[in-house]
């Protein structure tokens, strides 16, 4: 890791340093606020999407078509009594949701939202950092399951730890092809590398890897059909069964931010981030007036929609099938993808 680039903003001039600091904090605040707004509205979006898929309307009462529903939910959760099981491990119980949330939120630091807008600029281990953070958030889940001192939560925590460890490997391996092609771990450089090709998106050449990545992303974020740690029909709610009020909503936010992060990674690594393919730009040059952020968000929303679509469609996996899918199918396929990508890259 290039230390000088990471601490590069520490200029010699103190006023310059303070100015940079303020800009940095402002940037972080803006990103977090926007991310949390996205969490709020992705819950609304999900409820609306799934509602309409299931021939009902979803939230309709609070605001126009339920637009203020997320805030109503937030106010409700905020004022709920915070119950801590008397036999639980109090400090760990309180810590667990924060670990889950902060680990996922800090992933936002390396995501390039649009041209040159990254909090941690020139982070040349961007992808590794993302993997590290998503593994870290699993600790929140495991600790929550453990500290609740409830058997359902414990089972949920166990399932989650096994699931995250298994799918983490396949997730990382599915992105190795991208690393090989772009020759970088820095997300900005990955996007720039994609722009060098006429198609401008690695999904064209790395389609199998993209599918693998999506499957693993579903598993990593505990979404249907891999929502075993919180399978409500088996484990009631899984690891957060004992949580209530704000602590519950921290887990909830963590899950949705993780979903957004996973969509962001998919967009950045496979769909060219904020850019459009050069071939499209050449054909339709007037599209250049649209800011890159719009394309980025559009792509992210499509992925979020996919998350909801799948949730409304498929049943839940069984634990042993999940494990065999992860170890016997996804990991070998991801490895094969690496081998083939490397050979092709070496030959051409």
């Amino acid at each position: 890791m290039d230390i000088s680039s990471f601490y590069g903003f520490l200029g010699t001039d103190t006023t310059d340093f303070i100015l940079r600091m303020i800009i940095m904090v402002a940037k972080i605040a803006v990103v977090i606020v926007i991310a949390l707004l996205h969490v709020a509205y992705s819950t609304w979006f999900e409820r609306k999407i799934i509602g309409h898929m299931q021939i009902r309307l979803g939230p309709m009462r609070v605001g126009y078509h339920g637009l203020l529903q997320p805030f109503a939910d937030f106010v409700k959760l905020f004022f709920k009594e915070d119950i801590i099981p008397s036999s639980g491990d109090r400090p760990v119980f309180q810590l667990a949701p924060m670990i889950a949330l902060f680990a996922t939120i800090s992933s936002l630091a390396v995501i390039p939202f649009f041209n040159d807008f990254v909090i941690a600029k020139n982070m040349n281990v961007g992808l590794l950092y993302l993997f590290a953070m998503s593994s870290l958030s699993a600790y929140g889940i495991i600790l929550a399951g453990w500290s609740s001192n409830s058997k359902y939560a414990f089972l949920g925590g166990l399932r989650s730890s096994a699931q995250v460890i298994s799918y983490e490997i396949a997730l990382a391996l599915s992105l190795v092809g991208i690393m090989v092609l772009s020759g970088s771990l820095n997300l900005v450089e990955i996007i720039e590398a994609q722009q060098k090709h006429w198609y401008g998106m690695y999904v064209v050449v790395q389609f199998p890897a993209y599918i693998l990545f999506l499957i693993c992303a579903f598993a990593e974020t505990n979404r249907t059909p891999f929502d075993l740690p919180e399978a409500e029909s088996e484990l009631v709610a899984g690891y957060f069964v004992e949580y209530s009020g704000m602590r519950f909503s921290l887990f909830f936010m963590a899950e949705y931010i993780a979903m957004i992060i996973m969509s962001c990674i998919a967009v950045t690594c496979f769909w060219g981030g904020w850019t459009l393919p050069p071939v499209v730009m050449k054909a339709l040059p007037f599209l250049a007036v649209v800011p890159g952020l719009v394309w980025f968000l559009l792509k992210v929303y499509c992925h979020l929609f996919l998350f909801y679509w799948v949730r409304a469609t498929v049943p839940r996996f069984r634990y042993d099938h999940l494990m065999s899918l992860g170890w016997k199918v996804l990991i070998p396929l991801a490895l094969a993808n690496i081998v083939i990508t490397s050979i092709v890259k070496f030959l051409f």
């Binding site: 799934i50 299931q54 009902r56 249907t224 929502d227 029909s233 409304a312 498929v314 049943p315 839940r316």
Partner: peptide, 16 residues
């Protein structure tokens, strides 16, 4: 049955 297994949409279709 479908809801228990995790297929949520069938539940609402059939209730209709």
């Amino acid at each position: 049955h479908a809801l228990d297994i995790g297929a949520m949409t069938v539940f609402l279709y059939s209730m209709r």
